[in-house]
């Protein structure tokens, strides 16, 4: 096993009754990567991330975290991972700090000061004692991020971490990601539907479209060969168009079964 690969997703397929889903998604996240998982709403990013963190099961395919299968060896697989899926609901009847304490208790050996550290890190120190139910949308998102960070994970799976944040908040999160990547060598697998955001912080990008990973590569690789004023945005549009044309030449329902 390549020790460098912290998240290894192989041939992930899952179909839902509404025919949306993901098909044969394969990708690897290496240590130190800030892997941007990009695609429009409904492309299947959350599905992949939920499977990767053991919340749901794939019909086919496998996920390995640090070499451990997420279904068969859940505890070792998840011990070095922090996860935030969608809004990352907190227990609203508990204080923000209590919410983090619950999470921290499940990682033996975590220093007691860690909860304070993460509260500080996400800028909620002053509001730790307030009930999470009274938090604003942005504060809830910060608390959720703190929840993912509390275990000092080596890999962070963050699904739309800037959702619901104002511009200032988005900038702060971006700064936080960079800081953790630089200082703690934290690996990131994060999704967004905001292309510009991805461009700014990610070193690798996977593009998911209608349940399929249509391109994957480093920023440089992806933009190579595009026009001079190329950006991820124009690249994406081109890719989508190409996909559609290809699909038009195929029989209509090959894509899903």
């Amino acid at each position: 096993m390549n020790g460098d690969i912290v998240l290894d997703i192989q041939g992930l397929t899952k179909s839902y009754r509404n025919r949306r889903g993901i098909e044969n998604v394969t990708l690897q996240v290496r240590r130190g990567d800030i892997y941007g998982f990009f695609g429009p709403n409904g492309a299947g990013k959350t599905t992949v991330m939920k499977i990767a963190s053991g919340l749901i099961r794939a019909d086919r395919g496998s996920v390995r975290l640090f070499g451990y299968d997420v279904n068969e060896q859940y505890e070792p697989a998840m011990s070095r991972v922090g996860v935030l899926i969608e809004k990352g609901e907190a227990f609203e009847y508990l204080s923000g700090r209590r919410n983090l304490e619950l999470a921290a208790r499940l990682y033996p050996g975590l220093p007691k000061t860690r909860v304070d550290e993460v509260l500080e890190l996400v800028g909620l120190s002053k509001h730790g004692k307030e009930k999470a139910g009274h938090y604003s949308l942005g504060m809830k998102m910060r608390l959720a991020i703190a929840g993912a960070l509390v275990s000092k994970p080596e890999l962070l799976i963050l699904d739309e971490p800037t959702n619901g944040l104002d511009i200032e908040g988005m900038v702060e999160i971006r700064e936080l990601v960079r800081k953790l990547a630089r200082e703690e060598r934290t690996t990131f697998f994060l999704s967004s539907h905001l292309i510009s955001e991805m461009e700014m912080i990610c070193n690798r990008i996977g593009i998911l479209h209608e349940g399929k990973l249509i391109r994957e590569g480093s920023m440089g690789e992806l933009l190579q060969g595009s026009g001079p004023s190329s950006s991820l945005e124009t690249y994406f549009i081109e890719q989508i168009r190409a996909e559609r044309e290809a699909a038009d030449h195929e029989p209509a329902n090959v894509r899903y079964h």
Binding site: L55, Y74, E75, V83, E86, E89, A90, F91, L102
Partner: peptide, 15 residues
């Protein structure tokens, strides 16, 4: 229902 269960499940504790 309110999905708070996720914050319990994504920890290294099996179900």
């Amino acid at each position: 229902g309110d999905r708070t269960i996720r914050s319990v499940l994504v920890r290294p504790v099996n179900r």
